[in-house]
Design a binder for these strands. Structure first.
Length: 451
DNA sequence: TATACGATGACGACTAAT
DNA sequence: CCGCATTAGTCGTCATCG
């Protein structure tokens, strides 16, 4: 049996925890560079504001209705997420952190101290919900069902119907049949816009309709094995297990960093500064995870919303690192510069860039190489003492940046000389964040004062 | 003026090895 | 040496989800 804990309007809820005046108010949180709406309070949803809506298109509407607007504050949201996940980890034996605001729980074999809840999983779910609220201030809903897909579905219904008290346990086939009939096809986990359109065209309008199709049909219509699994899960047969998150953290298979620029860029030196900066961030995340990367991708994007700009909007270049896996920012940055030159088209106006680290694996010790090992003849191991010095250097840089703030120590190539000479404090690729709340939980000077 | 970011997986085209 | 089939891997693009 699976539980799904999903925080309500998570980013808005995080802002509300530290600013109770926001309760009952329409509130939205904007994405990076104050571009798009990415979190809405119930009151904001009631005004018709949509997820992903560009800010500049609704600015007037927000002003008219007195909507409280926030730039995103990921330091705060990440910290609140850790608090929620930490409590869940302490409480149930298996927790899979699915996203910043969601976790799957293994409610199959409960530990002894939870056995009073056996057969009363709705009571356990209610208790978890109440404890998360009390300990972190974050409201949640909990769905419980025999498969992950049904737990997602139960969670959605728990959110929709306030009479359920934030919890729905699909404990019987009858309840499951009822629940399937309540959910529109496009709201099923794994059914996006394309599939929803395809399915409604042939009269499949609800989760219940989809649960009735044959496996062969699902394979044909919904991308092979993925579709077959989805239908089986709706029928109550688990096809996906729980992947517990080790000590409350998530280990990624890939790490990326990308941003839309503060303004369109045409100079390769400016984009290189951006790419190098993104690469530095990605490499920091890589080292924090304790891994090395074997594959590096750099991509650049034009403005796909500009009708004068013809597709393709994006170009990428990927490289399997000739020197083998590394977590060294300087090594990675050197290759990133080459990859940027490969995708660069002179005379193009660029809008966004990003880097991706793939083929992540822990540092290999001695001769032992991992999944992505190159042929032995090609592997040229650097002198061990040098590796140690470089690893030490990276550790020192990470420590300084952690202590004195991100960007205290950074690569020279992230700082375009012209920008410095012109006295700009902000690099041309950096955006704005006009309405950021204080880092209530992670910066000493921003801590709340209680009188 | 202005339209997110990050993670995952699928697929087609291509290459190398067997 | 070539042609063919198969497999694994690489690389670029696209779609989906939260």
């Amino acid at each position: 049996m699976f539980g799904l804990v999903d925080c309500n309007n998570f980013y808005v809820s995080c802002e509300r925890v530290f600013q109770p005046r926001l309760e009952g108010q329409p509130v939205v949180v904007l994405s990076n560079n104050d571009s798009c709406i990415i979190s809405r309070s119930q009151e904001a949803k009631a005004l018709g504001l949509k997820m992903g809506e560009p800010y500049f298109q609704v600015r007037e509407q927000l002003r008219q209705h007195g909507v409280q607007v926030f730039s995103s504050n990921y330091a705060l949201y990440g910290d609140m997420s850790r608090r929620v996940m930490h409590y869940l980890g302490q409480t149930v034996p298996g927790v899979e952190i699915y996203s910043i605001d969601e976790a799957f729980l293994d409610l199959g074999g409960l530990q002894r101290h939870l056995t009073p809840y056996l057969g009363k999983l709705d009571e356990l779910a209610s208790e978890i919900r109440a404890q998360v609220k009390q300990r972190t201030g974050i409201p949640t809903c909990v769905g419980v069902a025999p498969t992950k897909t049904l737990a997602k579905l139960a969670n959605r219904l728990a959110k929709k119907d306030a009479a359920l008290g934030g919890v729905l346990y699909l404990d019987s086939p009858e309840r499951r049949r009822w629940a399937l009939g309540q959910v529109a096809i496009g709201d099923v986990w794994g059914i996006g816009r394309q599939y929803a359109h395809k399915l409604t065209a042939v009269g499949i309008d609800s989760a219940a309709d989809l649960a009735k199709v044959s496996e062969a049909w699902a394979r044909k219509m919904l991308g092979g094995v993925v579709g077959a699994r989805l239908v089986r899960e709706l029928q109550g047969y688990p096809c996906a297990g729980l992947h517990p998150s080790e000590d409350g953290t998530l280990s990624r298979q890939s790490i990326s960093c990308s941003r839309t620029f503060g303004r369109p860029l045409t100079a390769q030196a400016d984009v290189l500064a951006a790419v190098t900066s993104f690469l530095s961030r990605a490499a920091e995340k890589l080292r924090r995870q304790g891994d090395q990367a074997y594959v590096l991708t750099v991509y650049v994007q034009k403005n796909r919303f500009d009708s004068r700009v013809p597709p393709p909007y994006s170009r990428s270049a990927t490289l399997t690192l000739p020197g083998g896996p590394t977590a060294d920012t300087l090594v990675l940055a050197r290759y990133a510069a080459h990859l940027l030159a490969r995708v660069w088209e002179p005379g193009t106006v660029y809008h966004k860039a990003g880097v991706v680290l793939d083929g992540l694996e822990p540092p290999s010790s001695g001769q032992q190489l991992g999944l992505f090992a190159a042929p032995a003849a090609v592997v040229v191991p650097p002198a061990p003492v040098l590796v140690t010095k470089r690893a030490d250097l990276m550790a020192q840089v990470d420590a300084l940046n952690a202590r004195y703030g991100r960007g205290t120590v950074r690569l020279g190539s992230t700082v375009p000389a012209l920008a410095v000479m012109a006295g700009h404090t902000r690099a041309p690729w950096q955006g704005q964040a006009h309405w950021q709340s204080p880092a209530f939980t992670t910066r000493l000077e921003d801590l709340l004062t209680v009188r």
